[in-house]
Amino acid sequence: MSTIFLYNFSGLALFAIGLHGLIRSSHLLRKILAANLMSSGIFLIMIVGAYGPDQALIDPVPHAMVLTGILVSISTTAVALVLVCLVQETTNRALLLQKRKREQRGRTDA
């Protein structure tokens, strides 16, 4: 019981940390890592769900879903990294425009 709770709690914590990172960090690479963290949290929660209440029978469906999910998250990360490179190429910074403007404004103020 307590082990299952620990796994669930860690999954939830990973999701929350990832969500915070995705919204709050400004560097695009950090945002992508945060999104990966979020999906890892979800995968953990899914895998723990495979253990039934009696813990003797293990449900194979969550495993299939997590495997598919890992593939999806790898492809997403690949596309995201290419896009970060493109953004870096055009603006010389791996940041979104809004943040960049705010920083520039801060610099001129200082």
Partner: peptide
Amino acid sequence: RLAAMRYLLVSLLGSCCYLFGVALLYR
């Protein structure tokens, strides 16, 4: 390119939320 990057991040966040919802429903 910047719009696509923002779109990707929003779409990633949306998919993560959706997948979490699906995981809880399955449980």
